[in-house]
Computed example of a mutant assay.
Amino acid sequence: MDDERRVQARYPRHQANVKAARSLARQVAREWGLDQLAHDLTLVVSELVTNAIVHGKTAQGREVLLTFDLTPFHLRVEVRDSGDGCPRRQGGGVNGDSETGRGLDVVEAITSRWGVAERVIGKTVWAELALNPEELQSYGEGVCL
């Protein structure tokens, strides 16, 4: 495996593109020999891309940028949109009764850490899946930087 790899894709802001993003996540996991992370990676991508499309409040015609970065320690997923605001966990947990609003709770539960970086236009929500979990600590809830 190379020490570092990167894959990026842009998707128009449309709900149907969540499926395409999940498919890319499975492909990246397979091509990078990370089959053990495929399920978790696909779930994280699904939640982050869905949030960007549904809650990102970006103008029609704007795109969502999905980035996968592989380092020797983790696989990082970033989803950038042009919407304002800082996403927050709803706090209901992954076992709550609500059918919505648990996406970031799910992301927090299955990643080693996650967060939000505000940009001049929009934001990037990122999450990392540890390749060597004992070397990374959980950082808890993401915060806008």
Rank of each mutant, 00 (worst) to 15 (best):
A59G: 05
Q60C: 02
G61R: 13
G61S: 07
G61F: 08
G61L: 06
R62E: 13
L65G: 00
L65K: 06
T67E: 03
T67L: 06
F68Q: 04
D69C: 01
D69G: 02
D69P: 00
L70D: 11
L70F: 05
L70Q: 14
T71V: 08
P72M: 05
L75W: 09
R76Y: 03
V79F: 02
D81R: 03
G83P: 03
G85W: 05
G85M: 06
P87T: 09
P87C: 11
P87V: 09
P87H: 06
R88S: 14
R88N: 13
R89M: 15
G92E: 07
G92I: 14
G93T: 08
G93V: 08
N95T: 13
G96P: 03
G96W: 04
D97Y: 15
D97S: 13
S98A: 15
S98I: 02
S98T: 10
S98L: 10
T100P: 01
R102C: 01
G103P: 04
L104Y: 10
D105H: 11
D105S: 07
V106A: 07
V107C: 08
E108F: 04
E108M: 07
E108D: 10
E108H: 11
A109P: 02
T111G: 05
S112P: 03
R113F: 15
W114H: 13
G115I: 01
A117P: 03
A117S: 12
A117Q: 15
A117T: 14
